[in-house]
């Protein structure tokens, strides 16, 4: 049941078609480099949004320092390509760098997760926030990494194909995680932590696991981002960035893979379209967040799922559930 997405030939075909399309778009010059860049941002944001949705949407915890993990991934991957590989090997070094970035972020998340999951509620919010600030402050003070001036020297290794591949990997892994036994445990924590503990769900272990997976993909996104803009600086990964990711999660819809894809795409494209507004552009995001929270706090998709992501055995049930949610919200 876990891998019925891949077993179904149509899905495989779709993924392959997407890969081919990304090659075509990247190589053919059909779209301008500006559009290409935005497409890559959309992809990176999908990875970020989906990974944060795992903690905030599916598990019901509240993490606000996602940019901190992204920073760890971005710096680690840049160190690997610039210092370890010295920009040799071309794109062959890139997967290693990305995995290193993801692993570094996952490792750091353990340090955050173990103390902060002793208590529930606002503490994770405060701790993750503190973590984001500490990472930023440390990076600003480490001269070897460029301090406040930032780190550069990376080649532009990120292209649409890489972004697509990692997007697909992220969606595939997170989708299968959500519908696995661990995923059920995660959902039960959101619904009622005490009750799930009573039916012998190891809540602490599950929470740490979910948090580490989430951080890993944030690190991957950071690595892709670093090799796209070829210049990273601690201020890029401030709390502002974390808030942007939060907006995308809550815009698209909590607890929904399709919602995350939608939220990341809509928000990224919207901010680009609003570019002529100048400074006022930055007023839109926060305002949207506030209005969204008041009018529709679960987001566009809001706990509903595009049925293509739901295991076949559950589709009938989810369809019923979807109409029930729609009826309740009306």
């Amino acid at each position: 049941m876990h891998s019925d997405v891949l077993k179904s030939k149509r899905t495989l075909l779709l993924i392959a078609a997407g890969l081919a399309l990304s090659f075509l778009v990247e190589r053919s010059g059909l779209v301008s480099s500006y559009v290409l860049q935005i497409l890559m941002y959309v992809g990176i944001n999908i990875i970020l949004t989906l990974s944060l949705n795992l903690v905030n949407g599916y598990m019901g915890e509240f993490s606000v320092g996602h940019a901190g993990f992204m920073a760890v991934g971005a710096y680690m991957a840049s160190i690997v390509t610039v210092w370890v590989f010295r920009n040799s090997l071309g794109w062959l070094a890139f997967p290693v760098a990305i995995l290193a970035g993801g692993a570094a972020a996952a490792g750091t998340s353990l340090i955050v997760a173990i103390p902060s999951f002793r208590t529930r509620g606002d503490y994770l919010a405060i701790v993750t926030l503190a973590f984001n600030m500490i990472v930023k402050s440390l990076l600003e003070n480490i001269e070897a990494l460029g301090g406040p001036r930032g780190f550069l020297g990376m080649n532009r290794l990120t292209n649409l194909v890489w972004v697509y591949v990692w997007c697909a990997i992220t969606i595939y892994i997170i989708r299968n995680f959500v519908y696995s036994n661990y995923g059920r445990a995660m959902l039960s924590i959101r619904e009622d932590e005490v009750a799930s503990n009573l039916v012998s769900v190891n809540t602490r272990q599950t929470k740490v696991l979910v948090f580490v997976i989430s951080a890993f993909f944030a690190g991957v996104a950071g690595a892709l981002f670093a090799h796209l803009v070829q210049f990273i600086n601690p201020r890029t990964f401030s709390i502002q960035k974390s808030t942007d990711i939060l907006v995308m999660v809550y815009l698209g819809g909590i607890g929904s893979i399709f919602g995350s894809i939608l939220g990341a795409t809509v928000y990224t494209v919207l901010l680009e379209l609003l570019r002529p507004l100048g400074v006022w552009r930055w007023v839109v995001g926060p305002l949207m967040l506030v209005v969204l929270m008041i009018t529709r706090p679960t987001g566009i998709m809001g706990l509903r799922e595009f049925l293509g992501f739901v295991p076949r055995e559950e589709r009938a049930e989810r369809r019923k559930e979807g109409t029930a949610i729609a009826a309740a919200s009306r």
Binding site: V64, D122, T243, V247, V283, P286, V290, M293, I294
Partner: peptide
């Protein structure tokens, strides 16, 4: 009476709004 997380996120949003509104 909404989940507490909604209010906290709203607060983050209000803060950023005040900053950027002043900036603009």
């Amino acid at each position: 009476y909404a989940p507490r997380v909604s209010a906290v996120i709203t607060a983050l949003g209000v803060g950023l709004f005040l900053e950027h509104f002043t900036l603009a």
